[in-house]
């Protein structure tokens, strides 16, 4: 993603003059599907809310005020810092971060395993990784719920094995949410790492071994730097959608606590329908994600400049 930003600026020189027209379609798509919606969101976040959904075209900071300041249930106490939404953000960041780590721990060896097969077998392994993702995310999340419920196959199998006496209570817990996120986004980690690992020159490992590097040293000093772009791309691809996920928290977590995604959804689908607050929350989320991506992009370009 961010790699794309860097290479676009690099290659911009090639498209000077009339050839610049060639990138017009991309600009139109970016403008129409990215910039326009984000601008609308930004504008809506500064408007006055209309009761039961919609906006009144009057400037207002109420949405951001609601996010950061707590004035009590009835709104007449002196303002204090509002922890409610910060906590919801923190919970989502934590879940998304954990999911990214789990995906990396499982995804990296998997990708490495595939990349070290003979080319004919690689295709089969990749196909096996992607086949479940031809099925809609909703269906897969519901199926996960069936698998892990108290009376589901997982518990019945473990009880049959004698590993546990009582069913493991997984459904409606944070563990279930984590499992759902991990399962939903694992291929987004495997595929970019595989793409990096496939291009890795294996004679480098042999050379390192010839120079008396141990297995760990080879992994740390030679392999990891080589596949780092894949790891970073994979981490971003897992982290960002996990942050806004609401299917897994709703279906597997029991919808008991808001995640960022469900908090925003509630502003549009809930009873009072507070669109400006939903837009403001989205803008704050977007700012966090953008900050992370910009830092990454800048560290990348600096490295390339060196």
């Amino acid at each position: 993603m961010a790699g794309g930003i860097a290479s676009a600026s690099e290659s911009a020189g090639i498209y000077k003059g009339r050839a610049g027209l060639l990138i017009l379609p991309s600009w139109l798509i970016i403008g129409f599907f990215l910039l326009l919606p984000v601008c609308m969101m930004l504008i809506y976040s500064f408007l006055t809310k209309e009761f039961r959904g919609g906006v009144i075209w009057e400037f207002s900071l109420a949405a951001y005020d609601q996010f950061f300041f707590n004035r009590g249930l009835f709104g007449d106490e002196p303002p204090q810092i509002e922890w409610t939404y910060i906590n919801i953000f923190w919970r989502s960041l934590w879940q998304a971060g954990l999911a990214t780590i789990f995906c990396l721990v499982i995804g990296f060896p998997t990708a490495w395993f595939i990349a070290t097969r003979v080319p004919r077998h690689r295709t089969i392994w990749l196909l096996l990784i992607t086949i479940p993702y031809w099925v809609n995310l909703l269906i897969r999340t519901v199926s996960m719920k069936f698998l892990i419920r108290d009376t589901g196959p997982l518990n019945e199998f473990l009880i049959w094995l004698g590993a546990i006496g009582e069913p493991l209570h997984l459904i409606n817990t944070n563990i279930a949410v984590q499992l759902g996120l991990f399962y939903s986004y694992l291929p987004f980690m495997v595929l970019p790492i595989y793409a990096s690992a496939e291009r890795y020159n294996f004679s480098l490992s042999e050379a390192a071994a010839d120079l008396y590097a141990g297995r760990w040293t080879i992994l740390r000093v030679v392999i990891l730097p080589a596949v780092k772009p894949g790891i970073i791309a994979g981490s971003i691809l897992v982290f960002v959608p996990s942050l806004g996920a609401f299917l897994a928290p709703d279906l597997l977590g029991g919808a008991k606590t808001f995640m960022i995604g469900s908090l925003i959804e509630e502003q549009f689908k809930g009873n009072a329908g507070n669109w400006p607050f939903g837009a403001a929350t989205s803008m704050i989320l977007l700012s966090i994600v953008m900050t992370v991506l910009i830092f990454y992009a800048r560290s990348q370009t600096r490295r390339e400049a060196r």
């Binding site: 249930l73 009835f74 409610t84 906590n87 606590t257 808001f258 809930g270 009873n271 009072a272 507070n274």
Partner: peptide, 17 residues
């Protein structure tokens, strides 16, 4: 009415925070 609904919303958000 709106002024009560706002409070109901606050209670609901409180419940799920």
């Amino acid at each position: 009415p709106q002024e009560v609904q706002v409070l109901y919303d606050a209670i609901w958000t409180n419940l799920k925070k």
